[in-house]
Amino acid sequence: MTYKLILNGKTLKGETTTEAVDAATAEKVFKQYANDNGVDGEWTYDDATKAFTVTE
């Protein structure tokens, strides 16, 4: 299944996707991606759209 990450960081904005077996796996991938790019903020998840959002 495809999951999307929407980044609303102070220095990094954009979107990326990942293929994962479930939302928990996608969340781990996205949190590592955000951490690697220096984005740390409030996380939300919308199951209807399979989209995670992180806002700094």
Results as ranks from 00 to 15, higher is better:
T17A: 07
E27S: 06
A51I: 15
A23S: 09
E56D: 09
Y45C: 02
T18P: 00
E27Q: 11
V54H: 01
E15L: 08
V54E: 00
F52S: 01
A24T: 10
L7H: 03
D47A: 14
K10A: 12
L7V: 12
E42I: 15
Y33G: 00
K13I: 09
D47S: 12
E42F: 13
K50P: 02
D40W: 14
V21E: 12
A20V: 04
E19N: 13
A48L: 13
T25Y: 07
G14F: 14
E56S: 07
E15P: 04
L12K: 10
T49C: 06
A48D: 13
K28H: 08
E56F: 10
G14M: 14
V29F: 15
M1V: 14
G9F: 14
T55W: 09
F30L: 05
V29R: 08
K10S: 11
M1H: 15
F52T: 00
A26R: 00
D36T: 08
N35A: 15
T16P: 03
N35G: 08
E19W: 15
T25M: 11
Q32A: 12
A26L: 01
K4A: 05
Y45P: 00
D46H: 05
K10H: 13
E19R: 12
L5G: 02
N37K: 14
A26G: 02
T44K: 08
T17Q: 10
D47N: 09
E27M: 14
Y33Q: 03
Y33I: 07
N35P: 01
T53L: 06
A48N: 12
T18M: 11
K13C: 10
E42T: 13
V54P: 00
K31C: 05
D46N: 09
N37T: 06
A48E: 13
A26Q: 00
G41F: 03
D40H: 15
T49H: 11
N8D: 09
Q32K: 13
T53R: 05
T55Q: 06
A34R: 01
D40S: 14
D40M: 13
A26V: 02
E56K: 04
A48H: 11
T2A: 06
E15K: 05
V29I: 14
A20T: 05
T53Y: 09
Y45T: 00
A24R: 09
K4H: 11
Q32S: 07
T53C: 08
T25D: 09
V29W: 14
Y33F: 12
A51Q: 14
T2N: 06
T16G: 04
N37A: 13
D40E: 14
A48R: 11
V29E: 07
W43F: 04
Q32L: 09
N37V: 15
V39F: 13
Y3E: 02
A48K: 12
D46R: 03
K28R: 12
K10Y: 11
G41R: 01
V29D: 04
F52K: 00
V29K: 08
Q32D: 09
L7G: 02
L5W: 02
T49K: 11
V29Q: 08
K13T: 10
L12G: 07
D22M: 03
L5S: 01
I6C: 06
V21D: 10
K31H: 08
D36Y: 07
I6L: 06
A34V: 09
E56G: 06
A24D: 10
T55D: 06
D46E: 06
E19C: 14
K4C: 05
G41Y: 03
T17G: 04
L7K: 00
V21Q: 12
G9C: 13
T49I: 10
A48P: 06
T18G: 03
G41T: 01
A51C: 15
G41L: 03
D40P: 04
L5A: 02
N35W: 14
K50R: 14
A24H: 09
I6W: 05
G14V: 14
E19M: 14
K50M: 10
G14R: 10
A24L: 11
K4D: 03
G9K: 04
D40F: 15
G38E: 06
L5K: 01
T17F: 14
